[in-house]
Amino acid sequence: MLGTHSTGKTRLCKHIERELRGHGLAVARTGRLGKRAAQAGLPTMQHHTARSTEWIITQGIADEISAVALGAEGVLAYWHAALEFRRDTAPRLERERLLILAATQLPKYDLLFATVLDEEVPVDTSQVYDPRYRRLVDEHAHRLLADDSIPHQRVTSDPDSQAHAIDVAVQRCLKRALV
């Protein structure tokens, strides 16, 4: 699941998790990597650096080994957006190293949801968000998916889109559970 902040990723994951548990499937969910990075003293949001991005990707990989979930492309979108927000550029080797690290994880996923920013939906007010940075993350996330031709399903804030995503995830998981 990837998308900019306050686009419904966590809510959608919780709905999918509840449905899967209702079908008797065991579910493991990882996340909160941005908060964990901040607790570790690493820069986040529009202050993301190559170091904080690498920490989040590798911590996500470690979490997956213990459980399952999370996409590295979303972390790269936050970093690219932070660079653009600060009008900065990444050194070529740093950029290539992070892209390769993220690319090693993509084959593990057979289903990827990408939430779409709807600026009419209010943001989580427990955190301070910069609207420009939020739009940049959304743009970079969808650009990364398109540029790399990564198969994904776009999920909007529309209830029908949300319900369809939940149904797709549940059906895919139930099918895999039978194999």
Rank of each mutant, 00 (worst) to 15 (best):
G3D: 05
T4K: 00
T4M: 02
S6Q: 02
T7S: 14
G8W: 15
K9H: 05
T10I: 04
R11T: 14
R18Y: 08
R18G: 00
R21G: 05
G22I: 09
G24D: 00
V27Q: 03
L33G: 05
L33R: 08
G34I: 03
A38I: 01
A40R: 08
H47W: 07
H48A: 01
T49N: 02
A50T: 14
W55Q: 05
I56S: 11
A62L: 08
I65W: 12
S66V: 06
A67G: 14
G71I: 05
E73P: 10
L76N: 07
H80C: 07
E84Y: 02
R86S: 13
T89H: 10
T89S: 11
L98P: 03
L99I: 04
L101Q: 11
L106R: 10
L106G: 07
T115Y: 07
D118G: 02
V121E: 09
V123M: 10
V123G: 09
S126I: 10
Y129G: 00
D130Y: 04
P131H: 02
P131N: 07
R132W: 14
Y133I: 10
R134G: 01
R134M: 05
R134E: 01
V137S: 07
E139W: 07
E139G: 04
H140S: 06
H140E: 06
H140D: 07
L145Q: 03
L145H: 00
D147N: 11
S149P: 00
I150K: 09
Q153L: 02
Q153Y: 11
D158K: 05
Q162C: 11
A163G: 08
A165R: 10
D167L: 09
D167K: 10
V168F: 05
L174D: 08
L174N: 12
K175D: 15
R176W: 04
L178D: 13
